[in-house]
Nucleic acid binder design. Structure first.
Lengths: 222, 222
DNA sequence: GCAAAAGTGTTATCCCTACACCCATGA
DNA sequence: TCATGGGTGTAGGGATAACACTTTTGC
């Protein structure tokens, strides 16, 4: 079966930079390509857009295929369309990024084994296509949004401590912050509350646990 | 001649919201469609992406076709891809917005006469496709960027006065501002300088003229 | 009791806001 | 001379940034 058009049509794909926090670091999900082009190289998960599905739907579908999760933060990033970005044919890629809380991860369940893995953003290998460029832009966007929105909480587990939260800010923005000021700033957002519980992790004072009052909601500041 | 693919491919277009300031108001350029669908209705200028050109190139091409200008501010806005947004076939639209200084306009030279016109953003008629949605998003983006960047100067002519500049801010953000504070804020940006000239426009004190030190450059604030 | 990380308040500084009068011009 | 819009400075308040010591725990 073939599809014929009067004018040339490009192919359209979605690619997703999926982020999470693990082992105190910001990680991105990559898959090892099983098919040419770039067979054997790492790439962002992605795929072609179905003719009857919306772009966002395609992004959700890919996200679920690779991670099993569904209710996470997903945002359109940018559309990349350089004529030679794919050696096969003209492929225009609508890029998205997703933020997954560290406790929702089941990965590798849905997808096939050792061709999927999380990489610290410092240790990302060479990537197929222009995926390095996509990843860079996604990181910029996420870092910028920490400053004027509450998306950071989309990366936090159900309950978390202040030092944990601060750590997330610091690994993403690379700006070290005074912990007293950071605490004040977070509480002033009015989107988290104490659970009453504490978390003890070693030979030191336990940390108070917090939760987000309304997950699913992202506030914009100022 | 026909183009055949193994899998179905959507068509990809670019649509552009082109803004300028005229008669003290923010205007957007619309074209009246000469072909179905939506024949006779107004729409954002746009067209299909050539197989060998980048998305930005396609946007520039359309922009130049309609306005004759080339050196203006052009930014990718968002990609719209609902399956039914075009009644003919699946069309994915990569939307851009452009800002043109009021003194660079020649319009209607390049394009065909009375099927192109500028509309104040308050008087935009019903638009074809989902172009109202695109326009709304473009306006939001521009208004938001006034707060944290210097894109406003991309709308200003070679030389301009403070009241003119303030007017641009006010028509876009709809936030009236104290003129003393506004002036201080603008000067603190360090991107404009006095020309030494004045502009006299009526029975009142003449206004000092300013120019942008480095056009082409857009600063991000804070 | 000691090391390690968590928790906590106050002060100084900067930035933003509010606010009112004089000036230069054309008619 | 009068109406019109352009130009100018200061003081107060709120937000942000700087800064050091005490607490709780595990070993």
């Amino acid at each position: 079966m073939a599809y014929t058009y009067k004018y040339p049509h490009p192919a359209v794909s979605v690619d997703i930079a999926i982020f999470t926090i693990r082992d105190e670091a910001l990680k991105v999900l990559l898959i090892r390509r099983g098919q040419p082009p770039y067979r054997g190289e790492w790439a962002l998960p992605g795929g072609f857009v179905g003719l009857e599905e919306s772009l966002k739907h395609a992004a959700w579908r890919e996200l679920k295929e690779e991670t099993g999760v569904n209710a996470v933060y997903l945002e359109q990033l940018f559309t990349f369309g350089h004529p030679q970005r794919d050696p096969r044919e003209r492929v225009i890629s609508v890029a998205y990024f997703a933020l997954i809380p560290s406790d929702k991860l089941e990965i590798k369940a849905a997808s096939d084994a050792d061709s999927v893995d999380w990489f610290g953003i410092e240790e990302v290998p060479k990537l197929a296509f222009d995926h390095k460029k996509i990843l860079r832009k996604a990181l910029e966007r996420v870092a910028a949004k920490l400053d004027y929105s509450t998306i950071a909480f989309q990366l936090m587990p159900e309950t978390f401590t202040m030092p944990q939260l601060q750590h997330v800010y610091e690994v993403i923005t690379r700006v070290p912050t005074d912990k007293r000021n950071f605490r004040k700033r977070m509480l002033a957002l009015n989107v988290i509350e104490q659970t009453g519980e504490e978390k003890r992790t070693g030979a030191h004072r336990p940390a108070k646990l917090y939760r987000v009052v309304d997950r699913n909601k992202v506030d914009y500041i100022k």
